[in-house]
Measured scan of single mutants.
Amino acid sequence: MDETGKELVLALYDYQEKSPREVTMKKGDILTLLNSTNKDWWKVEVNDRQGFVPAAYVKKL
């Protein structure tokens, strides 16, 4: 969790967005987890953008 109590995830792999609903991340990025109710796609925030990334590409910290 960060200082505001939000849950964080670590990008395990690079991911290039394939639609406007997704976000690009690089391996090693720390992202804010917004929603993990879907087992396949998690909603995150990175670089002031919100979108989805494959759940298998990130790990909760």
Rank of each mutant, 00 (worst) to 15 (best):
L8N: 06
K39N: 11
E45C: 11
V58K: 00
D14V: 01
V9G: 11
P20E: 12
S36E: 13
L8H: 09
Y15K: 00
N47W: 09
A55P: 03
V53L: 02
D14P: 06
M25P: 00
K59T: 14
V23F: 13
K39W: 07
R49N: 06
Y57T: 07
Y15D: 01
K43G: 04
D48R: 09
V23H: 03
E7T: 14
Y13E: 11
T24C: 06
L12Y: 03
E22I: 04
V46M: 15
R21D: 12
W42T: 03
K18P: 04
L12I: 11
D2Q: 15
E7P: 09
L8F: 15
M25K: 00
L34G: 01
W41N: 02
E7C: 13
G51L: 04
Y13W: 11
V58Q: 00
V46L: 15
N35D: 15
P20D: 13
L61W: 08
A56D: 09
D40M: 13
L12K: 05
K59V: 15
L8W: 13
K26N: 08
S19Y: 07
L34A: 02
Q16W: 14
D14L: 02
A56Y: 09
G5T: 13
I30F: 06
E7W: 12
V58N: 00
L61R: 03
K6A: 11
K43R: 10
E45F: 06
S19G: 12
K27C: 07
F52L: 08
K60Y: 08
D29R: 02
D40E: 12
S19P: 04
W42R: 01
S36W: 10
F52A: 03
K60Q: 08
T24I: 03
L61P: 04
D2S: 15
N35L: 09
E3I: 14
L8P: 05
G5I: 12
E22F: 05
A55M: 05
L33S: 02
A11C: 12
L33Y: 02
N38V: 05
D48Q: 12
M1T: 14
K18D: 05
D14F: 04
R21M: 12
T4N: 14
G28Q: 02
Q50R: 13
T24V: 03
M1Y: 14
E22K: 04
D2E: 14
V53I: 08
A11W: 02
A11T: 03
D14N: 08
D14W: 03
L12G: 02
D40L: 12
D29K: 03
N47I: 10
E7N: 09
K39H: 11
E7H: 11
S19C: 09
